[in-house]
Design a protein around this nucleic acid. Structure first.
Lengths: 249, 249
DNA sequence: AAACAATCTGCAATATTTTGCAATATAAAT
DNA sequence: ATTTATATTGCAAAATATTGCAGATTGTTT
């Protein structure tokens, strides 16, 4: 049997099972495990698979890898991110909140837009590194370990120093009477500072968060310029906010 | 079963439930809990999940990217990092410079030490995320894309607000007469702010940098408390600095 | 402080890989 | 056709990695 034949069979098997064992292939191909091992090594050198102890696995693992999962949030948030982009204009100064909604906007951001982004989120800053034309101003402060955002007085002071054109605010809850609220004191304080430093406020919220309230106050509802939701079809709520002069998208 | 298969199953489970238990996986995978533990540890090292007591949880959408960037420092720098650790005492406030030398110290830092770390380096902050007992204060400012550190006036102001016990300063050049100097204006300015905010200054330098000078001034040589080098055998230079009252290690 | 669970460490048993080598096959040159 | 060089293959010993276990250590709960 030609070596190339073996290669093809190995790759076929791999395509079917997402894995191959040396012993199994040795049987199928009628060669020693050593030979299979050498074949696998050769294929690995070509980048066609990944050699692991005892066999091989596909080189670029499928979308089931967790790393990839993290980066794609829920479909609702993707929708929101897409809508949000249309509000950004070239040359603006934009504040990006530390939540996952704003993160998705950063991911969806085209590479050719020229921006100044002020944020307290490591992941966002990390993504924007690839955007040549985006200048990133990172807010200092105490680092919140699990979410990789900075909070605290330093962070607040940082945002106070800037005057942004637009602010993308990941929202926990919005209520017509109680305003924008969040579940965490310090994060809410930071959000307030963001709001107060920005001309336009774009709230990013899934539909079910409209009409709820949490413990800590961020800002009055009418301070929001626009509310972006995933499904703008809940007409009741819609009208309420529209009557307050808020742009619903 | 291939180790990689187990990895995939673990990550799949994690994607579904947002958590996995050692016992559960041990049953599913038909291996001992110890093996699962080791698997989880390995995955955690790759940044694909976060190991917690009793199991694992998804890693926050944090910047694993930095870790990839971290070049495994040269042997010299590893030596320096080892020596530097002995200067850190429990409970101290420490400033970590943005260079690779300080990064290696962070990597070598034991998990059980209690510290407050002030830094302007994303990679360092990212590494310290895993250290439960380390509080990280991150300096805001303009983000330098390629090196992932913040610089500029905001950064300097941030460091001015703190009084640290110890500061690890990655050094470009030290000269007995010209003092500590660096090749970049803004970075040198930030370093100066660090130096001025700290009681002890530990300079991290390879031997060949002692006795050279660059364009931008950081601080006078005698402001250094200690100079850590890779090979403390160049006696000529050694005596010069010692006679200035600097601890050479 | 005691009791318990989880983790770490060293170890031995097992499995896998590497390496050098010899036998065989394939290709190229005479 | 014969020889020579080159590559492939299988084998076996040595080196390395993995795994489960038992005891020590650490962390958590009551």
């Amino acid at each position: 049997m030609l070596k190339e034949e073996r290669f093809r069979i190995i790759l076929d098997q791999l395509g079917q099972d997402q894995k191959v064992h040396l012993a199994g292939l040795s049987g199928i191909l009628n060669v020693s495990e050593d030979t299979v091992r050498r074949d696998i090594k050769e294929l690995a050198d070509q980048g066609l698979l990944k050699s692991v102890r005892g066999g091989a696995v596909p080189h670029s693992p499928g979308p089931h890898r967790f790393k990839d999962r993290v980066e794609y949030g829920s479909e609702q948030k993707q929708i929101i991110a897409g809508k949000a982009l249309s509000f950004l204009k070239d040359g603006q100064v934009a504040i990006f909140d530390g939540g996952t909604s704003a993160l998705l906007i950063a991911q969806a951001l085209p590479k050719d837009i020229h921006l100044t982004v002020v944020t307290n989120s490591f992941p966002i800053a990390s993504i924007l590194e690839e955007h040549e034309k985006v200048e990133v101003l990172f807010a200092g402060g105490r680092l919140l370990k699990n979410s990789f955002v900075t909070i605290g007085n330093e962070t607040i002071q940082f945002f106070r120093k800037f005057r942004a054109d637009i602010c993308f605010l990941g929202i926990c809850s919005i209520h017509p009477d109680f305003g924008v609220t969040g579940p965490d004191y310090e994060e809410s304080e930071v959000k307030r500072a963001m709001v107060e430093s920005s001309r336009e406020i774009i709230a990013l919220s899934t539909m079910e968060k409209l009409g709820t309230a949490e413990a800590y106050y961020v800002c009055p509802t009418n301070q929001l310029t626009t509310i972006i939701t995933d499904q703008p079809d809940n007409l009741d709520a819609f009208e309420i906010y529209k009557s307050m002069g808020i742009n619903m998208v």
